[in-house]
Amino acid sequence: MGDRGEFFPSGPRRLYGFLHEPRATEAPLAIAPAVVVFVHPFMEERQDAHPFLRSLAGQVSARGLWAMRFDLHGCGDSEGEWEDSTVASWLEDIRAACDFARAQSGVERVILCGLRFGASLAALADVGPARVPLALIQPVVKGVAYSMDMLRAYLAAEMVLTKKAGVTRDALVERLRLGETVNVFGYHLTAAQFDGIRAVDLMPALAAYPARSLVVDVVKTPTARASNELAALAAAMGPGATLARAVEPQPLYVEGKVHLTRAEQVELALLGWLETLDQP
């Protein structure tokens, strides 16, 4: 049938997914058949990371595995509105996507790969029957810091437009508490989302992770300082975790000057790790 986009159910919702069938264009990975399910980052990061995730999925399928990209509820092409989604509903969506990927590919083994907050959700999703191999690219380790970044983005946008800061972060939190939403570049962040995101902390959640995992620290230059936070996360995950470093000249999820369509170092890190999955 070839690569295809289609809708699939997640409870009462319909989500959009794009399946990449395995091809034999490159030397196949020496591992048992698997389907790699990609979880996108959030808000505008999803838009700007799209070429990179598409390319990554294409590389995986070129090496003989199935790959699937999909949109969480209220994101991308999936049904629903952003403000009606919660962290809990997104976790259910990841499970539904894995079920769909298994059914379409006929392959039971799932590997989850996510970028930024998509990586954090992939890490927390229960896609059964046991914990699956995880590839986390620049995961958001602490939801508290990430939620504050979102509010900072609101304030920055306001300053650009009005040339002054009208409110403080505390005032924005207060608005959320009163049931209002905060417009972060057109996405209406709700209190439920804000609280759900703040509750995410990968360090305790992934301690002694029982399956193989990869944590990719993406840096801009070969001499850039490594992320202590990601190193600590990989260490906490235990002996099954691999920490990789990828040097990419531009961020993977922010529009830059160069028209980037792939991230070769990240691809190498992911494909190299996949190759080792069935090794003891």
Binding site: H50, C75, G76, D77, W82, G186, Y187, E255
Partner: peptide, 13 residues
């Protein structure tokens, strides 16, 4: 163009 078919803040959707 640069943004995919959903557009910024899913405007196109």
């Amino acid at each position: 163009g640069q943004k995919v078919r959903q557009g910024a803040w899913r405007m196109n959707v």
